[in-house]
C-alpha cells in the first residue's frame, strides 16, 4: 500500500517510516501540511497518516481538501494528542476515517493499517 505520512515531529516521522517500510509499504513523508498536499497530488497515496497540528496547513485542512477532492479514494488516519476530543470530532465531521492519539503504540498502528489494506482489496 502507498502511504503518506505527514508529521512535523521528525522523531515520530522517522520511526513511523522505519516501521511501515518494514511492514512492506511504500512510504512518502512530508514534514508540513503544504508539502503533504503537494505530495498527495503527486503520488495519490492509498492512505494518509496525518498529524493535526502542523505548520502551514493543519491536518484538519488536509482532511477537508482530500475528502472533497478524492472522496473515498484515500483513507485518512489522524494523529492527535490525548485529551482533544473536540478536535477528533471535528476531524470525523470532515471525513477522517480513523484516529490514533499520542502516545500511541506503533504495533497497534501497524495492525490498523493492515486492516485498511484488507478493506482496500
Amino acid at each position: 500500500m502507498k502511504i503518506l505520512i505527514a508529521e512535523d515531529d521528525a522523531l515520530i516521522l522517522n520511526t513511523l517510516e522505519f516501521r511501515l517500510k518494514k511492514d512492506g509499504h511504500e512510504i512518502i513523508t512530508a514534514i508540513d501540511g503544504r508539502e503533504a498536499l503537494e505530495k498527495i497530488e503527486e503520488h495519490r497515496p492509498d492512505l494518509i497518516i496525518s498529524d493535526i497540528m502542523m505548520p502551514y496547513v493543519s491536518g484538519l485542512e488536509i482532511i477537508g481538501t482530500v475528502k472533497e477532492k478524492y472522496k473515498d479514494e484515500m483513507s485518512i488516519i489522524i494523529l492527535t494528542t490525548m485529551g482533544q476530543e473536540e478536535v477528533v470530532l471535528e476531524a470525523f465531521e470532515l471525513g477522517a476515517d480513523d484516529f490514533i492519539s499520542k502516545p500511541f503504540s506503533p504495533s497497534e498502528l501497524s495492525i490498523r493499517i493492515k486492516r485498511f489494506a484488507l478493506r482496500k482489496k
Binding site: L11, I12, T15, K102, P103, F104, S105, S107
Partner: peptide, 12 residues
Amino acid sequence: LSATISFSGNSN
C-alpha cells in the same frame, strides 16, 4: 524522553 512521551505500549 521525547520518544517515551510519543509512544505507548511495547515501544514505551
